[in-house]
Design a protein around this nucleic acid. Structure first.
Length: 272
DNA sequence: AGGCAGGTTCTTA
DNA sequence: TAAGAACCTGCC
């Protein structure tokens, strides 16, 4: 089907934004995989996009996934060029990034794996996990098999050796514990949706292998709470170098997470 | 060859 | 409570 998107929307920036690990340039478009769904999407120019899904699937899933009901352009307008020149430049540079609505389970495992790894290494580990414990969804445009993200039950069945074979390193035991606890129901990620921000953070920090940074990524990308502001080495560098008097969290609330994405993307790719 | 990559846990004082 | 070390692995 074909859609028109008038708001900020840039597939290449989203793919490169570091929030998603199964969103890749493929043939003349992009392949996005979320849990057991895969979408091939390509730009036709003129704000038009071709998607290989039905209208029903788009309305029930992908529209939400791309967060198309939120007006990013108007949020960007909140940034004052004189008052906050660095963020203004970052937002211009990162215009088109959106915060995807991704699944809490998939994000939890993905960001546990992310610690002390670079993005290509994170992606490689996740793909190995999916091939080992996921189901075949389909073949992509390049003839590669696309696997679903493993369910908690499937992942919980893997041995430590099998997990280790996915290049998880010392994180293998974190992933295994999370899978076992979610599969058993000891940790109920769905129920966490009803918690307030503070209680949600508290619960996530109880998980083995989850510290403040990973918990914030889970809150922002897995629970789509757009005020969460994960601080990694890149963001800390930005705050140190460009915000000696502090970042204006009050001004941008409750959308600090979107601003974080602009800062992150800008600091990584512009090398300033 | 040694250091580091989107951190967290464990140990020690 | 707060630093410092240790941790898998792959890639400069």
């Amino acid at each position: 089907m074909k859609i028109t998107i008038k708001d900020d929307f840039d597939l290449s920036k989203i793919a490169d934004s570091g929030q998603c690990f199964r969103f890749n340039a493929m043939a003349d478009g992009y392949s996005a995989t979320a849990l057991d769904k895969n979408l091939f999407i390509k730009s036709l120019g003129n704000s038009e996009y071709e998607l290989d899904c039905s209208k029903d699937e788009f309305d029930s899933f992908w529209r939400g996934y791309f967060d198309l009901d939120l007006d990013y352009r108007s949020l960007r307008k909140r940034i004052d060029k004189e008052e906050d020149p660095y963020l203004f430049a970052a937002a211009e540079f990162g215009k088109g990034i959106r915060i995807l609505r991704q699944d809490p389970w998939e994000m939890l495992i993905s960001f546990i794996i992310s610690q002390r790894k670079n993005i290509p290494a994170i992606k490689a580990s996740i793909e190995k996990l999916c091939a080992m414990a996921g189901d075949v969804i389909k073949e992509d445009a390049d003839g590669n098999v696309i696997y679903s993200f493993p369910t908690p039950e499937k992942l919980a069945e893997l041995s430590l050796d099998q997990l280790s074979a996915c290049s998880l390193g010392y994180r293998d035991k974190y992933v295994q514990k999370a899978a076992i606890d979610v599969a058993s129901g000891a940790v109920d990620l769905k129920a966490y949706e009803s918690l307030d921000d503070e209680a949600l953070m508290e619960e996530l920090l109880k998980l083995f292998g989850v510290g403040v940074k990973v918990a914030n990524c889970e809150i922002l990308f897995g629970y789509h709470r757009l005020d969460a502001f994960p601080k990694d080495v890149w963001i800390n560098r930005v705050l140190e170098n460009h915000y000696p008097n502090g970042f204006m969290f009050d001004k941008y609330a409750p959308y600090n997470g979107i601003m974080q994405q602009y800062l992150f993307f800008y600091s990584r790719l512009s090398s300033i």
